[in-house]
């Protein structure tokens, strides 16, 4: 009998990108102005997608869906939403 490999078992495993490369859904990308950033971490906690780095405020554009919550919540206005080309 043919052995069933892990890939064919109907079990899911936790990994990034379960919905595909969700960055392709984006119409506007958040751009962080590091000069204005005070490292308050508000964008990090409110990001529904967990794509913003806690310490450096770097956005992972591969998975960022471009919802704009970070830009709306940033107290110093360091994040702006730029239209995707």
């Amino acid at each position: 009998m043919k052995a069933v490999t892990k890939a064919y078992r109907p079990i899911s495993w936790p990994m990034k990108g379960a919905g595909g490369d969700t960055g392709t859904w984006r119409t506007h990308r958040p751009v962080v102005d590091i000069q204005k950033c005070t490292k308050c971490q508000i964008c990090w906690i409110y990001c529904p997608e967990a794509v913003i780095d806690r310490e450096e405020s770097i956005v992972d554009y591969r998975y960022c869906k471009g919802c704009g919550v970070c830009a709306a919540e940033c107290p110093t206005g360091a994040i702006s939403m730029v239209k995707e080309e």
Binding site: K16, A18, T22, W25, P48, E49, A50, V51, C67
Partner: peptide
Amino acid sequence: LSGNGACG
């Protein structure tokens, strides 16, 4: 984890 199927 990043890249799940939820809406933005």
